[in-house]
Amino acid sequence: MLDWDWLLWLFLGGCLVVIFAVLIPLSQWLTRRRRIASGWVAWCRTAATLPWADRWRLYLATATGRAVSDARLAPLAAQRASAVAALQRAGSPNSRCYLLVLAGAYFALALWSGLQGAGSAAAAVWAVMGLGCLYLGATVGAAGRSAEANRALAERNAAQ
């Protein structure tokens, strides 16, 4: 009698290879188009000319939803925040809810792996992933607020 299990595994493996051969390039193509459409690529070109201290200030302003402390950086901060907000809008309108639910799932996995005695390393990894999702979920709308605040600051500086 023939053993057909190896043919099944070969077929499934071939299907996985075909799926990944199609999905990975498609995902990269869609991600690139989304980044170009949102203005993120233009922002990266602009950011390459800035010193690291200015990039850090712009990141903090975008992450906290506030205007930058240095008025000369206001137009750049508005550009960066607008690009980040567009990327977030392109991701999903419900991304805050998804990220917070995912953070809760990661924290539950951290608790479960800690209680199962799987080791503190596994629980720590799940907890760090949960903290990352929690941070991203908490800062979803901050980029839009930062863009508005920095546009207002740039307009005030231009009027003076």
Results as ranks from 00 to 15, higher is better:
A63P: 00
W52M: 07
L50I: 02
C44K: 15
A47R: 07
A53Q: 10
W40P: 04
S38V: 08
A42Y: 06
V68I: 10
R55L: 14
W52K: 06
V41F: 07
T62S: 12
S38G: 11
R45H: 15
T62Q: 11
L50T: 03
V41T: 15
R57A: 09
S69F: 00
R55C: 14
W52D: 11
T62Y: 01
D70P: 07
A67K: 11
W56Q: 11
Y59E: 10
A47S: 14
R45C: 07
V41N: 10
A63H: 05
W40Y: 14
A48E: 15
T62A: 15
L60P: 01
V68Y: 05
R55H: 05
A53H: 03
A47C: 08
W52C: 01
R55S: 10
T64A: 09
T64L: 09
A47W: 05
S69L: 03
A63R: 08
V41S: 13
A42M: 07
R66Y: 00
A67W: 04
A47V: 04
R66N: 06
T62V: 12
A47Q: 10
R66K: 13
A47H: 06
A47L: 07
W56S: 05
T46I: 10
A67T: 09
R55T: 07
A47N: 08
R45L: 12
L58M: 15
V41Q: 14
A47G: 12
L58T: 12
T64Y: 06
R72H: 05
L60A: 03
R55E: 11
V68E: 03
C44T: 15
V68K: 09
T46M: 12
A67H: 05
T62L: 06
S69N: 08
A42K: 13
D70R: 08
W43D: 12
R55N: 13
S38H: 08
P51Y: 02
